[in-house]
Simulated assay, not measured.
Amino acid sequence: MYFIGFLCLGSVGYIMGGSLPNVQCMENEQEALLKFKEGLVNHWDRLFSWMVEEEADCCKWRGVKCNRTTGHVMALDLHSQSPNESLQGELNYSALLDLPYLTYLAWNLNDFKQSQIPQFTGSLPNLKYLNLSNANFRGNIPSDLGNLSRLHSLDLSSSSYHSLGANNLDWLRGLSSLKILDLGGVDHSKAVNWLNEINMLPSLVELHLFDCNLNKLPSSLPRVNFTSPEIIDLSLNSFNSPIPWPQFPEWLCTQKDLLYIDISDASISDIVPDWFWNISTKVEHMILVSSQLRGKVPDLSPLANFSHLDLGENNFDGPLPRFSANMKSLRLYGNSFSGPISSICEWMVANSSLVDVQLFSNKLSGLLPDC
């Protein structure tokens, strides 16, 4: 026991004391990076440091991070800060197969000229972070991404109108460690059982499926396995259903850790159930804009973290509800709220942080008070 403890303390002291050996990157991994660079074009010369010279060390190159003790390349961060500095050209994908210890790969905000996401990406077994968002990829998402069993974060979102697509989300079943999933702007019109596949991700914390052409919003699940999301964004999906409108999703009642939820522009026509307003004591942002939701909004003042609420362009009625003293943005426009408008003075007195209030196009009465 004493010997083991001595080794542990010695190792910690070695790292913390700064007495690291002069470990450079592995020669074969440096050659792989240079091969990868060959097809890339950048007018701002972002990869100027990627040069072959005497005693060159790729661990010091821009965008490259190495393990401090082994010299293996662990991270390749080539994301662009602006369109002007984006990388372009053809990617030598196979070169990256010589970087087997890679855990972090970011190519977002570049321009890869409508090429397809490479199949090999699923052959990087240690990858934990993958961001290919807004990099001008097209075609179908390769299903071999499901081989990345250690992946924690996956971002394939795109602002190019549905240039990426997926026939199904079956491949997600292999990503049991996934915490963050962003497929916003990816065409999922053919993914019939999308929620069942999402339900197989028990560690999921963030779910972004906005503007995905999702056609069906199941109202329930036989058993909900993902219960820890803090962010759910299903906005800008024109869900349809044979009943004829989608019902309010009952499976949301299991999401007790939500901080942010957006199901706006989702064509849901239903009464919002009472449990939804108390879905999470942690909720901060709730966005339910432009659906066909109806019902009365209860007293929400006990939700101390609630700071942004947008219920615009729905069919809510009844008196204006009370809100948290920390509310910053309150948008209730385009509904049928009724009663005296003078109640807003109570909000202003109790809430000094309120900076955005939109109440137009309701059925409120009385003169606008001078608060």
Rank of each mutant, 00 (worst) to 15 (best):
H208T: 00
H208Q: 10
H208W: 08
H208R: 05
H208C: 00
H208F: 05
L209D: 06
L209H: 03
L209N: 04
L209M: 13
F210P: 02
F210H: 07
F210N: 13
F210V: 01
F210W: 04
F210G: 09
F210E: 14
F210T: 08
D211Q: 00
C212K: 06
C212I: 08
C212Q: 09
C212M: 10
N213C: 07
L214T: 03
L214Y: 05
L214P: 05
L214A: 03
L214C: 03
N215M: 12
N215P: 01
N215C: 06
N215D: 11
N215S: 11
N215G: 11
K216Q: 10
K216V: 12
K216M: 09
L217I: 06
L217E: 10
L217F: 08
P218W: 08
P218K: 06
S219Q: 13
S219T: 08
S219N: 13
S219L: 03
S219K: 08
S220M: 11
S220Y: 14
S220Q: 15
S220R: 13
S220D: 15
L221P: 06
P222D: 06
P222Y: 02
P222A: 00
P222H: 01
P222I: 01
P222V: 00
P222Q: 02
R223L: 14
V224Q: 13
N225Y: 11
N225I: 02
T227C: 10
T227D: 06
S228M: 07
S228C: 01
S228N: 14
P229A: 00
P229T: 08
E230S: 12
E230M: 09
E230N: 05
E230W: 04
I232Q: 03
I232W: 03
I232T: 03
I232L: 12
L234C: 02
L234A: 01
S235E: 10
S235I: 11
S235H: 13
S235D: 10
S235G: 15
S235V: 10
L236N: 15
L236E: 14
L236M: 13
L236S: 14
N237G: 11
N237L: 10
N237K: 10
